[in-house]
Computed example of a mutant assay.
Amino acid sequence: MITRPFNFEAMLRPPSSRFDPVAFVDVAVIGLFFVLLNTQFVLAPGLSVRLPTVAAGTVENALATKVLTLDESEGAALLIFEGRMCTLESFDQILRTRVGEFDADVLLIRADKDVSLELLAKVWQLAAQAGFARTLLAAEPERAIGGGGP
């Protein structure tokens, strides 16, 4: 008793056993940021194109203003031009309605290596009729065997 003359311990409240919502909100917000920052918001359907390979010295560079992606499966041609999927006939209609717009444009054709030469020739012909200044066929340079690259 002499060591505790003022009896302060009797005046103290016992610690609260209630749940603190502020800590819970902090943890929830941090968890939400982790989820949002690690989420891929855009799930864009895509077309996997295996480009043909060419010798590095034969690759020509140009600033392409329009891109056309070609794929062919089971004899059916699939074209993607300006974000729209179309057939060869509808691609022809698009170009016919916009004659004269492509005079200074360069068309980059991304064709899968399994696309037939016949389809490629038809597309080149349509591009020439539409007035494209140039057409380029996208290609990947050959990689050295055992180069360790992807």
Rank of each mutant, 00 (worst) to 15 (best):
R4E: 08
R4G: 03
P5S: 03
P5W: 01
F6Y: 00
F6K: 02
N7E: 09
F8K: 13
F8M: 12
F8S: 04
E9A: 03
E9P: 01
A10C: 04
A10E: 07
M11N: 13
M11P: 02
M11F: 13
M11V: 09
M11S: 08
L12D: 02
L12F: 03
R13S: 08
S16D: 11
S16G: 12
S16I: 00
S16H: 06
S17D: 11
S17F: 05
S17N: 07
S17C: 04
R18W: 12
R18I: 05
R18L: 14
R18N: 13
R18E: 10
D20R: 15
D20Q: 15
P21N: 13
V22L: 11
A23Y: 15
A23K: 15
F24Y: 11
F24C: 02
V25W: 11
V25S: 10
V25C: 13
D26Q: 12
V27W: 01
V27T: 06
A28P: 01
A28M: 09
V29G: 00
V29K: 06
V29S: 00
I30S: 09
I30N: 08
I30V: 15
G31E: 03
L32A: 02
L32Q: 01
F34K: 04
F34W: 09
V35N: 02
V35S: 02
V35A: 12
V35R: 06
V35Q: 03
L36W: 01
L36I: 01
L37Y: 09
N38D: 05
N38W: 07
N38F: 10
N38Y: 03
T39F: 02
T39H: 05
T39N: 00
Q40R: 15
Q40M: 08
F41I: 05
F41T: 05
V42P: 01
V42K: 13
L43S: 09
L43I: 01
L43M: 00
L43R: 06
P45V: 08
G46I: 01
G46T: 11
L47A: 12
L47Y: 14
S48C: 04
S48M: 13
S48A: 11
V49T: 15
V49I: 15
R50A: 13
P52F: 15
P52T: 15
P52I: 15
P52Y: 13
T53Y: 07
T53Q: 11
T53G: 00
V54N: 03
A55N: 12
A55D: 15
A56E: 04
G57F: 03
G57K: 08
G57Q: 07
G57P: 00
T58P: 00
T58E: 06
T58Q: 07
T58K: 05
V59D: 05
V59P: 01
E60V: 03
E60Q: 08
E60M: 00
E60T: 03
N61D: 11
L63M: 10
L63W: 04
L63V: 12
A64I: 02
T65W: 04
T65V: 06
V67P: 02
L68T: 06
T69E: 09
T69S: 10
L70G: 02
D71S: 04
D71L: 00
D71R: 02
S73R: 14
S73G: 08
S73W: 09
S73P: 01
E74I: 03
E74R: 12
A76Q: 15
A76M: 11
A77V: 15
A77N: 14
L78F: 10
L78G: 05
L78S: 13
L78D: 09
L79F: 09
I80T: 12
F81A: 10
F81V: 10
F81H: 12
F81T: 11
